[in-house]
Nucleic acid binder design. Structure first.
Lengths: 158, 158
DNA sequence: CGGAATAACTTGACGGATCAAGTTCTTCGT
DNA sequence: ACGAAGAACTTGATCCGTCAAGTTATTCCG
């Protein structure tokens, strides 16, 4: 490939990317810190529990959790094993369906989400949702969806 | 504290946060993947080298790099040790100034940044900068700066 | 119907990140 | 001028994520 002068960022683009990349590092760290300090949970662990808690039967297949949380199956497997060891989640193989496995939120797990959610949501509001005007939040959504589309040329939409 | 009904997210807020949090996970992963595959660098390592390369003397104090890359000094110290082992960076104590240490980009390190930058910038353009309209990018910058301000009630601005 | 390919995980080894503690200078108070 | 406090790292233990390889059904194809 001929790679003429690469297309550097303009001053505005640079500033936007600088801010964005700092957020990419610091925001997850801030959320982790809150959840860890108050409930001994990772942001990712919280997401797993939260996704399960939204199901009526508190049950979801491993692959679906992985898709919902943007994680690899491998990472999820390790995390669910830890959560299971803490009694927050239970795993059960779906009979007659290949190697499919469901994760089920236990009562303890549900209680944990219920305890952790308000503080977490409050932090998300404090840092982001309540801090920016509604139209910027709408822009953020558009941006996010665009970026996800470009990163992953089509993961199925549920 | 009395914790009346916690303030849940509205439908729009929820959608924005869902997209944003997915980006928070996937975008760094995508950038890491490109840099790792093409140059054997982490996004974070690249940032360290890039920040140094922007200085005329290719030199920066450890703390300043840490601030510029939003990392802890500890993390930076480990990474710089690795980079030093690869000959991309050199460390030198600043004499007569406490424990201050400067990191200096070597020629090999500079060459590495020069080699890696175009591909990296192209990816950032591809995934974000060129994918969203200019006014959304401006919004992203505002949002980013706001969020950073809320996470860290004042780190100094250079 | 039998074997190869595929899907859906699990596991183990390894590398990177975090946290707490340890160094080593400098400065500040008395 | 001397000891205590603080600044600026470094180090080691531990934990988490990733990558490659291993399992275990199921399905597809000849």
């Amino acid at each position: 490939m001929t790679a003429d002068e690469p297309q550097w960022l303009t001053e505005d683009e640079r500033a936007a990317w600088l801010a964005a990349s700092a957020v990419l590092i610091r925001l997850p760290a801030a959320l982790d810190a809150q959840l860890q300090a108050d409930h001994g949970l990772t942001f990712f662990e919280y997401m797993v529990l939260a996704v399960l808690s939204e199901r009526e039967d508190r049950t979801l297949q491993m692959s679906d959790i992985a898709a919902a949380t943007s994680s690899s199956l491998s990472r999820l497997s390790h995390v669910v094993k830890r959560l299971e060891a803490q009694g927050l989640v239970r795993r059960e193989r779906v009979p007659g369906a290949g190697r499919r496995t469901n994760a089920v939120l236990t009562d303890a797990g549900f209680a944990k989400v219920v305890a952790a959610a308000p503080g977490h949501v409050a932090r998300v509001r404090d840092l982001l949702v309540d801090a920016v005007p509604a139209e910027d939040l709408a822009a953020l959504r558009r941006i996010g969806e665009t970026v996800l589309g470009r990163i992953d040329p089509e993961d199925r939409c549920p």
